[in-house]
Write a protein that binds this DNA or RNA. Structure first.
Lengths: 217, 217
DNA sequence: GTCCGGATATCTGTGATATTTGATCTTAGG
DNA sequence: CCTAAGATCAAATATCACAGATATCCGGAC
């Protein structure tokens, strides 16, 4: 292990690329709940054959972002208040857990990275909340947990949540929410090493992100 | 690397059947951590072509039961104490959540079903703990939560845990553990509607199941 | 004799494509 | 208007072609 470290070749796999392409589409709110998607259409759109698309889609189904219907068509899960409630509770429970692990391993560098995320706006032309920034902020934090078990679960939850992001644009008042308030609180709590405050701020942020989606809940 | 025994499957829904066949194999502890598996071998053992196996395996990878190696071979995750710890914490958090939801919807019928599970031994010839019975007991309870979000997550955790079940047989003393103690406590708490007691019993049961695996932890 | 290097044989998954199966829609017959 | 047979389309499965990885083995240098 004394040899100079050389980065591994980027094993470019079509399946992975398709998966992340679809994943991105979800987090951008490109899919509407209830939409049906066709493997052929996706394959043609992405310029590949059906095989990589099918495997990527299998993964998305396993993660709950898509569901198989009895008629063998694929569908984006329809909106469901009960499901939304489950999603929120799962996020509250798991992300609290991940936060604890992350705080065990917290460093000034990570906090700095989180602050950097907040100051760099991804795209000046966006209309709604900066979804990419929000994602980056949370996962910069969560990655600090270094948990190979929890992180994929949390990502799966965000992906399922992503299927509803399409509905955000509808609520004008949501756009003017103080988006960074809880994020700043989280950073302050991290700096102070105050676990209770960090948990409270994170919980509030999660609650907020669901209020954006369902203002009445 | 000895070929795990996997039951043949009938036609129709090949992909699903392959998935569940492999899943069963995991919960029976047929795979040893570190094992590599081959799509062609599995396809031949199951009497299908590679395609359904590939899709089933993709799902298992997404759920963390198998991992892709850089050399593109599939591998059962090797034992890892850190990972085990994460798994336990995730199970404690999520199953507590599911327990709460289940208790909101608890009925005498469900409790009776859980008791029935405990009195019917699946296979008289088994040597170790009755894994199938344990699974059935917990998921009879968890299904009562009716959560389409949380249940798959918990199943994924059990599946990852399952990759280590192979190691149980090694610990002779574990076999004589009072297996049903916590299960009976859970049932008693459910009957009494005592949430705190139910949570405590479930937590103890989860801790126990990891102690069976890693006696020193 | 032992150790190292390279060639090759034989695995592996990946991606593409052809074939089969099943479901839905249309439409002809009642 | 309703029913049922057939046309149509997409997904599920099987098969094929290929490139990368591992293992084996053989030859030569020390």
């Amino acid at each position: 292990m004394s040899a100079p470290r050389i980065a591994r070749i980027d094993q470019s796999k079509l399946r992975e690329n398709v998966y992340f392409a679809l994943r991105d589409a979800f987090t951008r709110g490109e899919f509407a709940p209830g939409d049906t998607v066709s493997l052929r259409d996706l394959a043609e759109q992405l310029g590949t054959s059906m095989t990589p698309v099918r495997e990527a889609v299998r993964r998305l189904v396993a993660e709950g972002a898509l569901i198989d219907t009895p008629s063998r068509t694929l569908q984006v899960p329809a909106f469901d208040a009960r499901r939304m409630q489950d999603l929120k509770q799962a996020r509250l429970a798991l992300e609290a857990l991940v936060l604890d692990l992350a705080m065990d391993r917290m460093t000034p560098e990570i906090i700095a990275a989180m602050e950097a995320v907040l100051t760099t706006h991804s795209d000046p032309g966006i209309t709604g909340p900066d979804l990419q920034q929000n994602y980056d902020f949370h996962f910069t934090l969560y990655r600090a947990s270094e948990s190979e078990v929890l992180l994929p679960l949390v990502e799966a939850l965000w992906l399922q949540y992503g299927a509803y992001l399409n509905l955000i644009i509808k609520h004008e008042e949501a756009l003017r929410m103080p988006e960074h308030k809880h994020h700043q609180e989280i950073i302050a709590a991290l700096k102070a090493g105050d676990r209770a405050a960090a948990h409270a701020a994170l919980a509030n942020d999660i609650e907020r992100s669901f209020r954006v989606l369902v203002p009445t809940a």
